[in-house]
Write a protein that binds this DNA or RNA. Sequence first.
DNA 1: CGGTATTTGATATATTGGATAACAATTATC
DNA 2: GATAATTGTTATCCAATATATCAAATACCG
Lengths: 173, 173
Amino acid sequence: MTVSKTADVDAAKPPRPSRKANGEGADEAASLQLGELSELLGYSLKRAQLRVFEDFLNCVAPLQLTPAQFSVLLLLDRNPGRNQTEIANTLGILRPNFVAMLDGLESRDLCARMRSTNDRRSHILTLTDKGRAVLARAKKLVATKHEARLNEVLGPANRAALLDMLAKIAREF
Amino acid sequence: MTVSKTADVDAAKPPRPSRKANGEGADEAASLQLGELSELLGYSLKRAQLRVFEDFLNCVAPLQLTPAQFSVLLLLDRNPGRNQTEIANTLGILRPNFVAMLDGLESRDLCARMRSTNDRRSHILTLTDKGRAVLARAKKLVATKHEARLNEVLGPANRAALLDMLAKIAREF
DNA sequence: CGGTATTTGATATATTGGATAACAATTATC
DNA sequence: GATAATTGTTATCCAATATATCAAATACCG
């Protein structure tokens, strides 16, 4: 039983809200059944991740920092004296791709590379004073706007439990 | 206090494991402190999502289905008689990008588009018999290999709680 | 010591996912 | 019936991700 060439069954006449210029449109195609999709952990994971990143970008917008850039600044602050390979590896960034990323941060005077005296191949990465200042401001924005809102939605206990489970997946899965 | 041009402090001499041909290398740059990074929900979210998708790909590899393709097949099965815009919207896929995706599925005879008799602009999407068969096999692989392993790692109760929180984020955040 | 293999940062490049603009065909609206 | 809106599509564009390769520097090993 193959498909017939025209669909005379299940007429294509969805609710068709037909309004689009409301506040900020994002309710398209209502009444679709997700089915097993809502039981797929990967699906919910990706959806949640996209929203969280979107909110992060909004919250840190005044500083023009992406989640990836913020994570680099955080790592540089916590781990002085490391080179590009080390930082990139711990963040799961490939060395070739990390070059352009550092170029961006360095051109904004947020961090600096300097050749190591021990191993003249590697570049020791450091935060500049401006980088430290921006990081401090970013941390504050993230804590008071981004993570605070997550705490509101989930509740502190749930938020902690969520974090634990995500870390467990990244670690043991 | 700006940065000096060469780093004579914090010598760049990491543990340097110096072995790379072990089983499957992924332990690079050990002993780096994540710091506040491990408290960033977005960071753990993304890391977990990447691992889960990676495992999904492995589990469904015999069927050559990506998570996105699987979600399309699932949606088509649950929602017959819908057009491209509706399916794409519910999955968060932009209509232009959905075209190539459908081309791929259709060229493998997993689904088919047919012009609606009601609205001759829209394409009604249907699963083919092969599409249904592949979907059934994929579901089985996902359930027995992918989700089962997640259940092992998290435990059923935690897995359910995790799913709820992720859905809540995608919904209320 | 000297030659080979590794490592580091870098470049070039390919692939993929995701986003916008524009267009023809069709339908809705007034 | 004229204008606006919708659908699928194409053409781009941008960002993230992946691989191969390279020169410089270092490690390794006979």
